[in-house]
Structure formats: C-alpha cells, structure tokens
C-alpha cells in the first residue's frame, strides 16, 4: 500500500522531469485519460463540483475502510487535474485523507500554472474530497 505522502512525492518527481509547461500539460492530459471514470448513474447535478468553469462530477464510495473516488469532466485538462488528485487520495482511509496536507500542489507548481478559475476549481475539488472523507469517517466509526 502506498501512503499519501509517498504518492505525493512520486508526483512531484514525475513532474520535475519535464522541461516546460507544454510538456507538463501533455502529461496531465495523458493522466486524464487514465482517470477512473464515474459511473453514468452518478453523473447527476448533485455530484457536480461547483466553482469550476468546466463541469466536474465526483463520486466516492467506501470499500471496507478505504474511500474509492471516481470522477469525470467535459474538459480534458481538468480531467488530468482530477486524475492527479484521485491518484493521491483514492484508496485511502478517510483519516489519512483528512490529515493529508496539499503542499505537493505548490511543489508541482500546479496552481501557478493554471488560470485563476482553474486554480479555484482545484481548491473546490480538494474541499469536496475532504468533505467525502469527513462524511465517511463517521460511517466507519
């Protein structure tokens, strides 16, 4: 099992290999293609994350004590951003998710290279992930 901080470290390293932001975008787009997709039946307005210029749907469910996230977006770069977040936070215990810091986002340089609206969307996504963790934590207990 990979801990959140280990995956975060891997991601920071992975992104440091690229020389310019064009390549990083290309990588993000590739990551988006492997995003664990949300089931059609969960693609409802209730599951849309507000605060994104493109549409983002996210769903979470519990598998024993781990949270599994699935998601989708109508924009491909946004899909890449969610894929990064899901790689970090999916298949983790709600407590781990709640305790995790998100410094890796600044270390990758994600925020500063996204447009302000996309950066806001990113913040909304993390908030939503933590909300799910909080909700499911009480279920486990």
């Amino acid at each position: 099992m990979n801990s959140i901080s280990k995956i975060q470290k891997e991601l920071v390293e992975e992104f440091s290999f690229f020389e310019d932001w064009m390549q990083r975008y290309e990588h993000m787009i590739d990551l988006g293609k492997s995003l664990p997709l949300i089931k059609e039946k969960y693609k409802t307005d209730d599951n849309i994350i507000k605060g994104c210029q493109s549409k983002v749907w996210m769903h979470a469910e519990l598998e024993e004590t781990k949270l599994i996230f699935t998601a989708d977006s109508d924009a491909i770069i946004t899909k890449g951003i969610i894929a990064i977040l899901i790689r970090v936070f999916s298949k983790q215990h709600p407590d781990e998710i709640l305790n995790a810091d998100t410094k890796f986002i600044d270390q990758i340089g994600l925020k500063e290279h996204l447009s302000p609206t996309r950066a806001n969307g990113l913040v909304s996504m993390i908030k939503q992930i933590k909300m799910y963790a909080l909700a499911y934590k009480t279920q486990i207990n």
Partner: peptide, 12 residues
C-alpha cells in the same frame, strides 16, 4: 474539445 482546454493551451 472543451473551449477551456483550448484556451489554456493557447495561453501557454
């Protein structure tokens, strides 16, 4: 292609 994706790449 989502307009937002295209706009982001053009910005770069």
């Amino acid at each position: 292609i989502h307009p937002y994706d295209l706009g982001s790449i053009l910005d770069k």
